[in-house]
Write a protein that binds this DNA or RNA. Sequence first.
DNA 1: GACGTATGAGCCTTCCTAGC
DNA 2: GCTAGGAAGGCTCATACGTC
Length: 433
Amino acid sequence: MDDLWERLERLGLRRGTAGLERPAPEARLDIHHLVPGEVVSTPLGNFFLHEERYPLDHRHGRTCLGQVWDVDPSRVEALLGSALPGPLDLRRALYVDTETTGLAGGTGTYAFLVGVGFFEGNQFRLLQFFMRDYHEELPLLHHLAEQFADPPTLVTFNGRNFDVPLLHTRWIAARLSPRWTQTPHLDLLPPSRRLWKSRLESCSLASLEWHILGVRRASEDVPGWMVPSLYFRYVQTRDAREMKRVLYHNAQDILSLVTLASVLGEVASRPLDPARPCTDCYSLATWLEEQGRWEEAEALYRRALAGPLAPDQRQRAMLRLALLLKRQGKREEAIPLWAALAESPRVGLLALEELAKWEEWHHGDLWAARRFCQKGLELAGVWLRGPARRRAEAEFQHRLARLERKLGLWGTAEGAQAGDPSGSPAPPTGEWP
DNA sequence: GACGTATGAGCCTTCCTAGC
DNA sequence: GCTAGGAAGGCTCATACGTC
């Protein structure tokens, strides 16, 4: 718009001429007056570009940007790479975050600010592509696609569901070829959830910054939910003072992408780090277990259980460790865990069933197996209702009938009341008899 | 050979949660 | 308000193994 006014002035058409009135004096508060940068001219029009450069030792929270250089790509790939088609080199990635006119997606939502960051030499370069009005979208998208046609990897936060599909839609709406369709993409949200969900109430980027990265944003930051309304107001008034804050917000998001990737990379590189909190040990153990890294998972479950855990998480850790030991053929090592879990209404029946299996099929004490079945039958009636109760009771009845057949009690008068010749008392729940 | 049991994979449903 | 993905739980099925 300023181009138009400058052209009018060059033509000698002053303010108020021909019914054309320059907007209020706030025009001098437009983005290029408040933020260092350049108005990029392209054959398709103009847009505003702001650039920042950070040294590798620039500290963002507790982490320096350059720490991402210490991350071994092969280790990152081993943990995070299951969704990626190739190696994951965080040093060569393009870190992307957009600010948009809403969340709705579809053709009505614009990405009015696209921030991209990448390492170049001994610096981290941050470019912010900003459209000062809707007609600047086409040159912005065109320039973005030209400059970053084929990055080796994308790193985003929830970008798999939000930023990248939105940019694809904008490129298509602008009749340009969508980019980054085949680019390997590391979305940091899923791994962050996997690792920290059990410890944090929220895994939003703001929460991760506060609790994991140690980032404290300056007062000029704006909350994400305000961004669309601030942009709408800017387009109407040309007063970019609030947009300066949005650019700051976007820049901070991108720096957080780098340091968050670095922290996740560190976790991938050293999963057994002794300094890791026990809640994180548990989360990481479940992750490694899924990837078939059973020995590391077992070590992490044990470390988690050695520290303070919330009761619910402790129970989950014991259950998962017991199942993992069983899968590894270490059934006997799992027995104390099953015995402890037999107290719990949620998993107690499973524990009693496992104890009965152990006694019947591996330890060979049919009387002990019978006692566990009787206990399970009794507790199913207490803990469960409806179909779940009927299923559990049928399961224990079936096992009990077989055991009594083997013991020679089936069909005899003493049947269900038969005593235990070993003379040992009935098993207290939760204790190994 | 018939039968019973354990195991793991795969599928489905439900609920929750990030992005601006 | 939209959307995709993850977690958890439940279910079925195929396979392998042991026992009688």
